[in-house]
Design a protein around this nucleic acid. Structure first.
Length: 546
RNA sequence: GGCCCGUUGGUCAAGCGGCUAAGACGACGCCCUUUCACGGCGUAAUCAUGGGUUCGAUUCCCGUACGGGUCACCA
């Protein structure tokens, strides 16, 4: 076979040499040990947990004085969605992830671009051509049907699937056959001529898993699709080489095609990056685990957490506890420290798939929010409401001080309340404060209903004085409780229920339901002070008459 | 089916040849308490399995089982 003739036939326009690109993209001048890594999403419009998961690469880069960049893997035109790049950047920005270089919404920055793969076509073709020149790549004119038949045949014969051996029908065709097909205009793909043997294994170092032993690739996989655009495999190798990536952090589902990638790096004579295959996030589906799925699991989408209003930092805290096994301990010891102060290490990453635990996320988020100031919570809630609950946003703006005061109830001090972990929960929880959204949802305590109800409320209103201190206020409640035949100490009532008509719990709960509409609410006196005297009296009277 | 990865309580997990096998979430119980929370204390609950190696295996090796992933001109 005349490789030169074939190369000229296949790539008539390509005149660059690999050396030209080596010169154009020189090794980066960085301190030793600097991590250069990226996230490389395909622009499908769906930004998911995995993208954020891999964005821990940013922390690694920062820690080492390296580079973190964004590359867009848009080699599949069919799946591309308008505005997808913006969506990725927007989501990453929301979570505080910043890129040193790479694609931006309206272009790009950095010296190693273009960072959109389809714009790198000439580079891929140059490398592909070099492989043809070396006799390591050849065109294949099989149709989709041909390949389908091949697969069926292999299935029936219980042989390995793939384009190899006798199934690699275009592997050793004479140049004349190729020319004839080309002349007819038949579509072709460029395949890699693999010399691999399934009996051999290759060792690959993995930053998370240690030494991996994988089967050598023996299939003639596709390098260039019929539109001249590379497959993921080929693009990944070319780009991560020329963009001088040191660490490839990606999902463990890529383990299956790792042999292809190392084979390419090795035959091109390029140093392999350090692969870091992360474990997948799983979910319980009936009795069995399975990986989180785009179609079935809304919680895979990053937008899910944004819509629910889970604070960004809380999301990171959860993700980091799943990602790095020593993070949780650190965070417990430094609850108020920025998570970026934590030194992230690949070795501490888990290598088995973990179940995604929404309950724990909720706990972490509640803990996180309980430690924040009222101003912070007000601002966060407002920002969320502006996007997802505009009616609430309007109310918050109209009554900013009132909302701040409401948010401040039970906040601060040694034991802050943990009533909500995300903005949508907060919106629901705080609704009772505002007269515009106040409704009574919980029942009146049984022991305080009927005649008792009005007796308690009347008695309470009679002595109610907003100037009272907490102690004075509670003393009055106790007096009232006793006067109406209730036990001041719940324990006494429990012991001798026949002696009382109930306990102070019934009395206070009645007041609580009257003022907040529910039995689960913060301190009555504090709430009253937020509501103001007029509104407090109005609600009590309304409840008495209800 | 081939190949690959994985397996410590319900969940996330520490452990890296010798420990009463950490911790967190959840569950349960008790205490505190004007309710609910919060907080405090405590309880139950784990090394998949069979062989090796070793004085000694959760830890190292092999097999089995189970789980997951992957076998496209998708990434």
């Amino acid at each position: 076979m005349d490789n030169q003739a074939l190369a000229d036939l296949l790539f008539p326009g390509i005149t660059e040499e690999i050396a030209d690109y080596e010169a154009k993209y020189p090794p980066r001048d960085l301190p030793s040990g600097a991590v250069v890594t990226r996230i490389a999403p395909s622009p499908t419009g769906f930004v998911h947990l995995g993208n954020l998961y891999n964005a821990i690469g940013e922390r690694l880069a920062r820690q080492t004085g390296g580079v973190f960049y964004l590359r867009i893997e848009d080699t599949d035109q069919k799946r591309e969605v308008e505005g997808a790049v913006e969506a990725v950047i927007d989501a990453m920005t929301f979570y505080g992830v910043k890129f040193d270089e790479g694609a931006t919404a309206d272009g790009e920055t950095g010296a190693y671009g273009p960072y959109r793969q389809r714009q790198r076509k000439a580079l891929y073709q140059c490398i592909a051509k070099s492989l043809v020149l070396r006799g390591l790549a050849y065109p294949c004119f099989c149709t989709e049907d041909d390949l389908k038949r091949m697969h069926e045949e292999q299935e029936a014969a219980k042989e390995n699937y793939g384009y190899y051996g006798k199934y690699a029908v275009w592997r050793d065709r004479p140049l004349a056959d190729i020319e004839a097909e080309l002349k007819k205009g038949t579509e072709w793909v460029l395949r890699f001529r693999s010399e691999g043997d399934p009996a051999n294994t290759v060792e690959v170092q993995d930053g998370i898993r240690g030494t991996l032993k994988v089967q050598e690739n023996f299939t003639d996989f596709v390098l260039l699709k019929s539109d001249g655009i590379p497959t993921y495999h080929f693009a990944h190798v070319c780009d991560d080489h020329f963009m001088r990536t040191t660490h490839v952090i990606r999902d463990e589902s890529w383990l299956a095609t790792l042999p292809i990638h190392v084979q390419l790096f090795d035959t091109l004579g390029w140093a392999r990056p350090l692969y870091c295959h992360t474990a997948q996030l799983m979910k319980m589906d009936g009795e069995s685990k399975r990986k989180l799925s785009k179609r079935k699991d809304p919680e895979l989408a990053l937008s899910y957490y944004r819509e629910a209003g889970v604070p960004q930092e809380a999301t990171w805290i959860y993700l980091l506890t799943v990602l790095n096994s020593n993070f949780e301990e650190w965070h417990l010891a430094n609850p108020d420290a920025d998570t970026r102060e934590f030194t992230f290490s690949l070795e501490k990453m888990s290598n088995s798939g973990s179940l995604f635990d929404l309950e724990k996320l909720d706990n972490i988020a509640k803990e996180y929010l309980s430690r924040q100031s009222a101003d912070f919570v007000y601002a966060g809630l407002l920002e969320w409401a502006d996007r997802y609950d505009t009616a609430l946003a309007a109310r918050m703006r109209a009554k900013a001080d009132f909302y701040r005061a409401a948010i401040n109830v039970g906040r601060g001090g040694e034991k802050p309340r943990k009533d909500y972990g995300c903005w949508s929960q907060a919106a629901k929880f705080l609704a009772f404060y505002d007269p515009e959204t106040f409704t009574v949802t919980d029942p009146c305590p049984e022991n305080a209903d009927g005649d008792k109800r009005s007796a308690i409320i009347d008695g309470y209103l009679e002595t109610l004085d907003f100037a009272d201190s907490a102690e004075e206020w509670f003393a009055k409640v106790k007096v009232l409780t006793e006067a109406l035949g209730y036990a001041v100490q719940p324990k006494k009532y429990k012991k001798n229920p026949e002696l009382y008509c109930g306990s102070i719990v019934d009395v206070t709960n009645l007041l609580r339901v009257a003022l907040t509409g529910r039995q689960n609410a913060p301190d009555i006196r504090e709430i009253s002070h937020v509501l103001g005297e007029a509104e407090t009296r109005r609600r009590l009277e309304a409840y008495r008459n209800a």
